[in-house]
């Protein structure tokens, strides 16, 4: 009679790990999909302005960026306000027109995101906007951070 069997004795201890590769693969695929590998190397300094009524751009693939801000020089100095598209600084404002027109041909739903330093003056942005209008890229977006 004194023969009670412990209930757990039969079961194995330890968490089953056979599903672990599946979980890991799922995470892996999620991060692979969300990753944007190539970040542009900034040659201008951009501190975003803050705003409250902002919207998100969901389709990142439609977005093309234009950076406007003081040029970064060696030794932490800042130079003149310059315009950067992709990896190159723009010397001739007129070339923005052809660059953006080519991009528009590739992606007709293009949104141009202007990443402008908050201490810039509006004149250079006016010039860029005029070029964008000539190129026909009319959907723009002023990048801002959320005001806290």
């Amino acid at each position: 009679m004194a023969h009670f069997k412990k209930k757990q004795a039969g079961t194995k201890q330890g968490v089953p790990t056979s599903a672990m590769p599946d979980v890991v693969f799922m995470l892996l695929i999620f991060f692979m999909v969300t990753t944007v590998l190539r970040e542009v190397e900034l040659q201008v300094q951009v501190n975003y302005a803050a705003a409250e009524n902002i919207e998100k751009i969901e389709q990142k693939r439609l977005v093309s960026y234009i950076y406007i801000g003081p040029e970064r020089l060696s030794g932490n100095r800042l130079g003149e306000t310059r315009v950067q598209i992709d990896d190159a600084l723009i010397d001739d404002m007129g070339s923005i027109r052809t660059i953006m027109y080519d991009k528009l041909m590739e992606e007709p739903r293009l949104i141009v995101s202007l990443r402008v330093d908050e201490d810039s003056e509006f004149g250079i942005i006016t010039d860029v906007q005029q070029e964008l209008r000539h190129a026909g890229t009319l959907r723009i977006n002023y990048s801002t951070r959320r005001e806290i």
């Binding site: 944007v36 919207e55 751009i57 990142k60 959907r139 723009i140 002023y142 801002t144």
Partner: peptide, 22 residues
């Protein structure tokens, strides 16, 4: 997984949208 974790930047682009006049 660790490689992609490290290189991922999940920043949603936010801003004020506008349509320029033609």
């Amino acid at each position: 997984l660790i490689f992609f974790l490290v290189v991922t930047t999940i920043d949603v682009d936010t801003g004020i949208g506008l349509v320029l006049p033609p």
